[in-house]
Amino acid sequence: MTTVNTVFIESIDPRFDAAACMNCGVCTALCPLEIIPLPRMLFREVMLGLEDKIIENEDTIYSCLLCKMCEANCPAGVPIAENIRLLRNYINSALYGLGR
């Protein structure tokens, strides 16, 4: 069962910005890693408050190359690489105790 954490988004750095994402999938199609949840589905899960899903996808989040192939081609101009970095920042703080 999926649990919705309605205040999860507040625990992510406020610079996280995926509001313009329309889930078109260009990012996923262009990803050199060919990992399916990267990055549009992750962003949707953040906005829906699916904290468990984000933690489940910890490996995916850290395996992003931050190469910006997706971002350079995103029709909505979503700052994808920075969003991924901020998700790492959340995991570092919430799970690894590495602070912010």
């Binding site: 395996s63 190359l65 192939m69 350079a72």
Partner: peptide, 20 residues
């Protein structure tokens, strides 16, 4: 449109980095 060399994930996922 350059393709990544895989290097950025070398420290955490070395096998995957080498595949890229």
């Amino acid at each position: 449109l350059t393709h990544c060399c895989g290097g950025p994930i070398e420290s955490l996922f070395p096998s995957r980095a080498h595949e890229i």
